[in-house]
Write a protein that binds this DNA or RNA. Structure first.
Lengths: 112, 112
DNA sequence: AACGCTATATTTAGCCC
DNA sequence: CGGGCTAAATATAGCGT
């Protein structure tokens, strides 16, 4: 992502991975905070890594628990009110992801 | 964050907010994916917004449910200082094993 | 191991269609 | 509205301490 591009794959070097983790974890939380504040959406994240003792939770333990609980308890049928619409959305999302995947693959090839 | 800086506050303009949301949501998921892949940590996110019908879940419904459940079920006493010490020991052990793993990997590469 | 620095890669606000 | 473009802001890999 800088100086040299980094291939999107597990970083095998322990030291580098740890340093990268610390930096990226910080950036990730910043992005979460920005999205949350600017657009006022319900957002929670959870990171469990061997690099810190406690879990990294956003925005905080209580709020995250609330959001997660609501998600887990969500009955199956609530997840697709209208199957056709649901399928359409899913298809679109898959197309998007496939495009991104293709992009990433091309980028990775370039770097080799 | 570009052209003009944006104040870290709720965007009052509906259209701008929606556009910003779409862009930032995409960026946020990318960052989650990168952190997850590069550092191989247990990571889950959940975004519920009025801008899309479904919840945005990372990495997927099943994995997220698992991670969230584990988090919610975590008993209070697991957060005690004793536990932290224990976790520290575990972390150290993991570090040791990882170093060994790295060593082995290097040796394997040499042999290729 | 953790920090600070900086050169680049990446993200994204403001526009245009 | 949703997609594409681009300039400017940010994030971060590699390196020195």
């Amino acid at each position: 992502m800088v100086r040299n591009k980094v291939k999107l794959a597990f970083m095998e070097n322990n030291t580098e991975r740890r340093v990268s983790y610390r930096k990226r974890q910080k950036g990730f939380l910043t992005k979460a905070r920005e999205l949350n504040t600017l657009c006022d959406v319900e957002l929670a994240t959870l990171v469990n890594s061997p690099y810190h003792n406690e879990l990294e939770v956003f925005p905080n333990h209580k709020a995250a628990t609330g959001i997660f609980t609501k998600f887990i308890d969500l009955p199956e049928d609530k997840k697709s009110k209208n199957m056709k619409t649901h399928e359409k959305i899913t298809t679109k999302r898959i197309e998007k992801i496939e495009k991104e995947l293709e992009k990433v693959r091309k980028e990775n090839k370039k770097m080799e």
